[in-house]
Design a protein around this nucleic acid. Structure first.
Lengths: 210, 210
DNA sequence: CGATATATGGGTCTGTCGGCCTATTGGCAC
DNA sequence: GTGCCAATAGGCCGACAGACCCATATATCG
């Protein structure tokens, strides 16, 4: 689980991103900050794995905050105006990633994962392909071992299709096979019943088709 | 269910807000737009109940887009710089709500609900108290009828506590009572088992304590 | 005061779920 | 080709879940 702290003075963006990232199965937003000072404080108390910092903030701006942290937790810088100027300042402040606020959300998630894995996105020339390597959430052992058919069963569970018969109908297989799939899901996710499977399915983001 | 279209050229905000609002049980984001032209198109094809529009957008800005729509679906205007100037322009474009991007997310949700209910937030002098009236999600009949104890059961289900015995232990009641609570939950939510109850619990936002 | 709602508890019964074992087919890898 | 895995399917059984009946105490409301 990648523990992230987000700093941005615009609360709509702060809280929106926070919820969106938190909903990913491998990312946990442990704190948020609306200014640089609060960011420094949160980093001290929560010791996160990655920082997500807006440049434009009152008092201590994102760059200054990162400078004071000395590149300790690796940081992804987000900015409204992604010019060369800002980019240079980000590099000087030891940022590992640099994204415009016009980037799509999956890119941000990928950047967080890349930086958490120790990569430095400021060096690379082909940002897109590096991010591509980190598009998939880092799932825990069990979840990664799920087969495609098992994921389909989980998707249906998350959609409220819970009885063996209806699952069988939707998947065009026998009830016995449904139970077999469920049994291997239980084993892989270390759970015991459909209710827990439904919870896991939603946590893994299987409810809306990727 | 309040059907919303969101327009903002900063995709991180657009997608973040979209996910956050969509996760509320009474709000559904049916489309998003990155510019005014696309907004006009989405409004035509999806006929939403409420618009959420950023002022600052390339080509056709939010104000101009609203003007062209003639106040048809009521709109909440969101802006980076919430000055008197912007506010006047929003009023002239027939906006029903006006929020800064520094507002907290629950305020945005409350504004969307208020506007969907026909209120005009531009008139009121005490915005806070009007929003307070719309803090709670507009739950459907069944979900609103849930008792406090029933919500606790749902919370535990969403946390993966699914067996009768463990539920009984956590709630300090007998297994029989757990089953009684579940039975009335099934009736109120028109569902049939714990797996569906877990799905509903998460959909209703019962997994993280309010 | 009487009615209603909530939380608690019980009993019974049927159906289904989950655990365990086996089996066949097809694909893919070494 | 031999082995492994995914997907399919069946049987068996014990345990639990859900439906349907009930009772009691407390509290709130008109």
């Amino acid at each position: 689980m990648i523990r992230v702290v987000i700093a941005d003075d615009h609360r709509l963006l702060l809280e929106g991103l926070s919820q969106a990232l938190d909903s990913l199965p491998d990312i946990s937003v442990v704190a948020t900050a609306e200014d640089g000072a609060s960011l420094l404080e949160q980093v001290r108390t929560t010791s996160p794995d990655v920082l997500l910092v807006d440049i434009e903030m009152p008092d201590i701006d994102g760059i200054e905050a990162l400078r004071r942290l000395g590149g300790a937790p690796p940081a992804v810088v987000v900015t409204m105006h992604a010019g060369e100027d800002q980019r240079r300042r980000a590099i000087e402040a030891d940022a590992r990633g640099f994204l415009s606020k016009s980037s799509p959300l999956p890119d941000l998630a990928a950047a967080v994962r890349a930086v958490a894995a120790g990569e430095n996105l400021m060096d690379v020339d082909d940002l897109g392909s590096v991010l591509d390597h980190h598009r998939q959430p880092v799932l825990d052992e069990g979840a990664a071992a799920l087969t495609e058919r098992e994921r389909e069963v989980l998707r249906l569970l998350a959609a409220g299709v819970t009885s063996t018969d209806e699952l069988a109908d939707r998947l065009f297989i026998s009830g016995k096979t449904v139970k077999n799939h469920l049994a291997s899901i239980y084993e892989k996710l270390a759970i015991t019943d459909r209710a827990q499977a439904a919870v896991e399915a939603i946590r893994l983001g299987l409810h809306h088709p990727d």
